[in-house]
Design a protein around this nucleic acid. Structure first.
Lengths: 133, 133
DNA sequence: TATATAATGTAATAACATTACACTATTTTA
DNA sequence: TAAAATAGTGTAATGTTATTACATTATATA
């Protein structure tokens, strides 16, 4: 599992935000998260959530899904967080796919152009099985 | 080249927005585009730009770059617009990479999970050569 | 020409994200 | 341990990106 403090300060606030994210099986917007956080911490403001998210992103405990402007707790089993995330444009569901072969191919192609790919999963937008039916 | 009317109504307004995009060699934000459009059309409002962009996106003349919340004219040589776009997190420069091999591999992996990948290029965020130096 | 449809104008607001500065808690070190 | 430094949080305001709703104008079709 994830969750262990990696030397940095996983404060109660930051842990709360992370645990809220873990409760969802889909990416969640910052303001939705804020609403939920408010039941624990009435003082919470947008920046409260964004700061906690920045921290968690830096630690690699959370991913930002650009296609949805939303955040998801990282469930990856491995140390790095490379791979693909499939995003359904219609129901917003996502599936993580830890395929190092594809990921390495992408990285190599990028490297040929002098470009060093980061560690965020690559986003693939499309349509999931249920929404196609 | 691109630009030919594909049966749909490429009105003056829409063409103007598209041509503004073509002038840039990088993705451009909607509000930056709006500022530029205003010199041609003082009446332009945010929705003016977004509507034109929606139209151009649908036609496949323009891509949205989610990682930057910005839009770029599509320069792809081919009918479909599949491939990769490399995005430098530091200078925001982008490079399009029309690699069907990678793209097909991604699509197949997605398909194994019942997921049908769309036609938007896959975004790879990282660091470009000059910014690494 | 009358009607329908598509496109655009106009205003307001929603959704997402950051900046600036004050205050508190924790850690460091003299 | 007191003073200073650093890290974390509170509070308010604002900046940025995107959409909704409805009125008006232009274009196509009967």
């Amino acid at each position: 599992m994830i969750c262990e403090d990696q030397g940095a300060a996983l404060t109660p606030l930051r842990r709360e935000v992370f645990e809220l994210l873990l409760r969802h099986d889909r990416p969640v917007g910052a303001y939705e998260l804020l609403d939920e956080l408010k039941s624990l911490r009435p003082k919470a403001a947008p920046v409260t959530v964004y700061r906690a998210l920045d921290f968690l992103l830096e630690l690699g405990l959370v991913h930002k899904v650009n296609a949805l402007n939303a955040f998801s707790a990282c469930r990856g089993q491995e140390a790095d967080h490379r791979g693909l995330v499939l995003i359904c444009r219609s129901c917003k569901a996502t599936v993580e796919l830890e395929d190092h072969k594809i990921d390495n191919t992408i990285r190599r192609s990028a490297a040929e152009l002098g470009f060093e790919a980061g560690d965020e999963p690559v986003e693939v937008v499309g349509t999931c099985a249920s929404c196609r039916a």
